[in-house]
Amino acid sequence: MYTREETIRRMNALGSAERPFFFVISHDLEHNLLFDPAAGGEERRASFSLPLGNMGSQNDSPPLPERICFTPCPCSLSRYAASFASVRNHLLRGDSYLLNLCVATPVETNLTLRHLFRFARAPYRMLLGADARIPGVHGRGCVCFSPEPFVTVRGRSVSTFPMKGTADASTPEAHFWLETDEKENRESATIVDLMRNDLSMVAADVQVKRYRYISPVETRGRTILQCSSEISGILPEDWRSRLGDVMMKLLPAGSVTGAPKEATCRAIAEAEEMERGFYTGVFGFFNGRDLDSAVAIRFMEENGKGLLYKSGGGITVMSRMEDEYRETIAKVYVPFDF
């Protein structure tokens, strides 16, 4: 387990040596893990799957149950309303103008963490602590099957892909609503502006390559539409020797915090009833030359009694509490591939 400063130094050293490693950075940036894929036994503690590389067994899971049970038990609307009211007070005071409010939902399921890692259909997957305790998650395991890339680097070209906006594709007007809803548009504009400014701290020639493109995400029995944007720039030639500095300057991820970041994170800590831990942090892989990373959303964690699914959504002064509650619960799903 590494602190923020230790993580920066270690990532800089590994990047300068062009030595491959996997990493997990917590939401608070102070409880971080680095894994050497060449070291034996790491697969007992963690497994990863990203476009640039894998670590640990990708197919090691018990057989799926003949009948799958996956039943969310959401918090009551009144409990969510209390957190929403706290967020709204901060928004009305001007402390924040966009805040991502998250909750933890218990799930009754006969699936294991290894089932979820093995069968979830997602470009970025992570499994921690299924067979051995991982410091920083209270001795509990967690799994993530994220659809959202955070930062990718190919050569010197760096890109980030903030995701803002979710709709159920079964609704005929879902695509049109995502494109035209004023609140969704303002959220995207805020986060794209924030991430463009963040990327400008580490890269030159920063441009919005794609603005608000919509992609489908398949889940069990339904399709969800997600709205994202792509922002790119050019890193300096020596970026690998400063890899830890580059990543920490961009964190925490704007799409799962809000803007402005510092004041918004304080408001989040006041409003939320849970510790985020690795949820809404980032995980990734540096292969010695290039980098993949993802925002740790679509996230489940053991709590000693069962599994908790952590999810959330962006809140602005235009948000309706009931709508935001429904969106947060709608994100409790598993994109299974079978």
Rank of each mutant, 00 (worst) to 15 (best):
M1T: 12
T3V: 06
T3A: 10
T7Q: 07
R9V: 13
R10H: 13
A13Q: 14
I25P: 06
S26D: 02
E30A: 13
D36P: 04
P37Y: 08
F48Y: 09
S49C: 11
N54R: 13
I68K: 12
C69Q: 14
F70W: 13
C75W: 01
S83R: 10
A85T: 10
V87D: 09
Y97I: 10
Y97L: 11
L98N: 09
L101G: 10
V107D: 03
L116E: 02
P123N: 09
L128Y: 03
R133S: 15
R133P: 12
H138V: 00
G139D: 03
G141L: 04
G141W: 00
E148Y: 03
R154C: 08
P162V: 07
G165M: 06
A167Q: 14
H175D: 05
W177N: 02
W177I: 01
S188H: 15
V192S: 02
L194A: 06
M195I: 11
N197W: 01
D198F: 08
V208E: 02
Y211S: 09
T219C: 15
T219F: 07
R220C: 12
G221A: 05
I224T: 10
Q226H: 15
Q226D: 03
C227Q: 15
E230F: 01
I231F: 08
S232L: 00
L235M: 14
L243D: 07
M248V: 11
P252A: 12
A253C: 15
A253K: 04
T257E: 11
A263M: 14
R266H: 14
E273V: 06
N287T: 08
G288I: 09
D292F: 02
G313Q: 10
T316A: 12
M318D: 03
S319P: 09
E324A: 04
K331G: 00
